[in-house]
């Protein structure tokens, strides 16, 4: 992956608009967060291969970045995004890596199931 270039990501996001696409969205603070720091409340969630359609996709911020995808009846949202890549089969992968380089958030779009 490489550091996010806002305009490049914006352009790629728009190629996924107004069609059914597969979504992977994940936040994680790691299974050991509460083990290392008992005061830390560990929480996370993910959805894999959610079939979604959005009419507006916007990346904002100055890094780390935020992305909002507007659906007919709702929203998809991720914050803390730092890196991205476009795979050979056209999947748009975005991730947020924390100060230690660990994955904290992932937002991915694909035309085919992951």
């Amino acid at each position: 992956m490489k550091p996010i270039q806002q305009q490049d990501v914006q352009r790629e996001l728009e190629t996924f608009m107004n069609q059914d696409v597969y979504l992977h969205l994940e936040t994680t603070n790691g299974a050991y967060a509460s083990h290392f720091n008992e005061k830390f409340f560990s929480a996370g969630a993910y959805i894999r291969n959610g079939l979604v359609r959005f009419s507006r996709g916007q990346i904002t911020g100055e890094g780390p970045y935020r992305i909002g995808l507007k659906m007919d009846l709702g929203w998809i949202y991720a914050e803390g995004l730092t890196d991205w890549e476009l795979t050979d089969n056209g999947q748009l992968l975005l991730a947020g890596h924390d100060h230690d380089g660990k994955l904290a958030v992932a937002l991915e779009l694909s035309h085919e199931p992951f």
Binding site: R56, Q58, T60, R66, G68, K70, W75, Y77
Partner: peptide, 10 residues
Amino acid sequence: LRDKTVEFED
């Protein structure tokens, strides 16, 4: 509008 989405609107 919806909370946390104001910046993504037109």
